[in-house]
Design a protein around this nucleic acid. Structure first.
Length: 263
DNA sequence: AACACGACCTGGTAGC
DNA sequence: TGCTACCAGGTCGTGT
């Protein structure tokens, strides 16, 4: 589920269903701290924001419910909070009878509720939103100059760019024809420009397809709706040069790339 | 500072 | 069919 495009889609779908409603009850099974019951119940949902992969429900009286879906979480609204699935980790009962459900088969997701100022101070550590005007080529070049991290790890570092994960980092590097192992500080201005453009283009496309996929009935199959060029394609022919896509491990995670195109 | 690795968790699947 | 081993879209803490 959860890289920036999918999290954005979750937020888009949530807004019409929960904005203006009051949280009137909380059932916490896992993944949530008791603060969700003590701080959120009784307050009204005024806004749904996103920063990187973090979902922020802005409540009345300066409280925010902060959710991170991690690997396998999902957050969605249902018309009747009593009809939640057996797998729900958190059920928030809303005014009007609706429900806000956090599901996560692996129980790695996290939810807590604290003063907005406190949460926002923590999230200030995150890098800029890649689809905002703050994310410029000059900014990227400035950060890149000061880091010797391999390009892939640099892109996945949330304190540098907020929201890129394993799939879209790999896809962006492929589109920019950058070797994921290359230290980011070694990239030429030209390569960095290609990378900057690729990140924006990949995420724009992915947000569009994720929002469409999430707006339909039923659940979607996440990034599968977005055509992937290298991710999870080990051994298959590169769509550009026909060489075999390789899988390597960086930072304990799989990286997929084309050794022909990405140099 | 940068990196590697284990922990957190469960479910799906490839291989035997 | 059934078992095992490994893999997974993320992050954090610890150790080198």
């Amino acid at each position: 589920m959860p890289e920036l495009p999918e999290v954005e889609a979750v937020c888009s779908k949530l807004r019409p269903a929960i904005l203006g409603r009051r949280i009137i009850a909380a059932k916490l099974f896992r993944c949530a701290t008791p603060s969700v019951e003590t701080e959120a119940v009784g307050r009204r949902i005024e806004r749904v924001d996103r920063k990187g992969k973090h979902i922020l429900l802005r409540l009345s009286e300066g409280v925010t419910v902060h959710t991170h879906l991690r690997m396998s979480g999902n957050l969605f609204a249902i018309p009747d909070h009593r009809l939640h699935s057996a797998g729900a980790r958190v059920v928030l009962g809303l005014s009007g009878g609706a429900g806000l459900i956090l599901e996560d088969p692996r129980a790695l997701a996290r939810m807590d509720a604290r003063p907005t100022t406190e949460i926002d101070a923590e999230l200030a550590e995150l890098g800029p939103e890649p689809l905002s005007i703050e994310f410029t080529l000059d900014w990227l070049a400035g950060e890149a100059k000061r880091s010797r991290q391999p390009a892939k790890l640099f892109l996945m570092d949330q304190t540098r760019i907020a929201g890129l994960g394993n799939i879209y980092a790999a896809e962006s590097l492929f589109r920019a024809r950058v070797d994921p192992r290359q230290p980011i500080c070694k990239l030429t201005r030209r390569k960095l420009a290609a990378l900057h453009g690729a990140i924006v283009a990949v995420l724009c496309d992915a947000v569009k397809s994720a929002v469409v996929a999430y707006s339909g009935p039923g659940e979607l199959r996440e990034a599968e709706t977005f055509p992937l060029s290298v991710y999870d394609r080990e051994g298959q022919a590169c769509l550009t040069c026909r060489r075999k896509i390789q899988r390597i491990v960086q930072g304990g995670r799989s990286t997929y790339f084309c050794p022909g195109c990405q140099k």
